[in-house]
């Protein structure tokens, strides 16, 4: 179960070069916290749109929840999209209903005809994104940017997908909004065991939250593994234009000045704190 890619090629235009090349990928249904990295144009958004059949492979097979995604088979779309919920970039632009609750109910209505059930799942989803009940009957357009984004995410959660995919969920939010949103996703992941997949450019987010990193460059997967091995592989970072987390840069600069030594590159503030203070104990 989960999502499997077998030798997948994808192109938007058969005459142009391929957007994705020979993708092989296995994503578990449960307990993943994956960040997809790569510079603009590397194929990240295209890849996640294959995960819920918004894009169909030109070659190879994408299998979602045991269902093979095939062209011209509309029957499979509903179960696939029920399995994988995709939140687009700037999802708040897609809000349209009169009230917050109605907007969140729109998605699950496609899967469930019983209005009471739909309302219940919508309310549960709104709770998961910590949106106050007093806002349910408000127009979504009178909310702050951060709140609107939460409504949009609730709209996907309300259909209760097993895997939640978000395309750059923190872009445009202020620093507190960013942290709150990431903490919320971690919380949802822990509570529901749903796998979470995030496209991001923010290495501080990767350092803090990611369990597994997938790096794309020019339509190919060039890395799939842990964040620590990735950040310690300076060759990989350089070749694919990836940045280090801010704290790791500080750590390297202290190391270069001979002020500290470390085996494992510190990725977070606490890790660097330990390196600096432990160094003292050893002496």
């Amino acid at each position: 179960m989960g999502i499997n890619f077998y030798d997948v090629d994808f192109t938007y235009d058969v005459k142009a070069s391929k957007t994705l090349k020979n993708i092989n990928l296995k994503i578990n249904k449960e307990n993943e916290f994956i960040t997809i990295l790569g510079h603009t144009g590397s194929g990240k958004s295209t890849l996640v749109q294959l995960m819920n059949a918004l894009n169909l492979p030109n070659k190879g097979v994408v299998e979602v929840a045991g269902i093979k995604i095939l062209p011209n088979n509309k029957e499979m779309l509903k179960p696939v999209r029920r399995h994988v919920g995709l939140v687009f970039q700037f999802p708040e632009y897609q809000l349209f209903e009169e009230t917050v609750l109605k907007d969140v109910m729109f998605g699950p209505k496609n899967f469930d005809k019983n209005n009471a059930d739909v309302e219940l799942s919508a309310k549960q989803a709104l709770k998961m994104v910590s949106l106050d009940e007093s806002l349910y009957e408000r127009s979504p357009f009178n909310l702050s940017g951060g709140q609107m984004r939460r409504v949009a995410i609730a709209g996907i959660l309300a259909s209760n997908p097993d895997i939640l995919v978000l395309d750059e969920p923190t872009v445009g939010l202020d620093p507190k909004g960013k942290t709150d949103l990431m903490e919320m996703l971690v919380e949802i992941q822990k509570e529901t065991n749903k796998s979470v997949i995030i496209i991001t450019h923010d290495m501080n987010v990767v350092a803090k939250y990611s369990k597994r990193c997938i790096v794309l460059d020019d339509g190919k997967i060039v890395y799939d593994g842990g964040k620590r091995e990735m950040f310690e592989n300076s060759e990989l970072l350089k070749n694919h234009n990836l940045d280090l987390p801010d704290i790791s840069k500080v750590a390297n600069s202290l190391k270069n000045k001979g002020l500290i030594t470390f085996e494992a590159l510190p990725l977070t503030k606490d890790e660097l704190f330990n390196v600096i203070t432990r160094g003292d104990e050893n002496e």
Partner: peptide, 14 residues
């Protein structure tokens, strides 16, 4: 609603 840059926050802790 802002955040201290990680490095500065580290200085405060140290």
């Amino acid at each position: 609603g802002l955040k201290v840059i990680d490095g500065l926050s580290l200085i405060e802790d140290l």
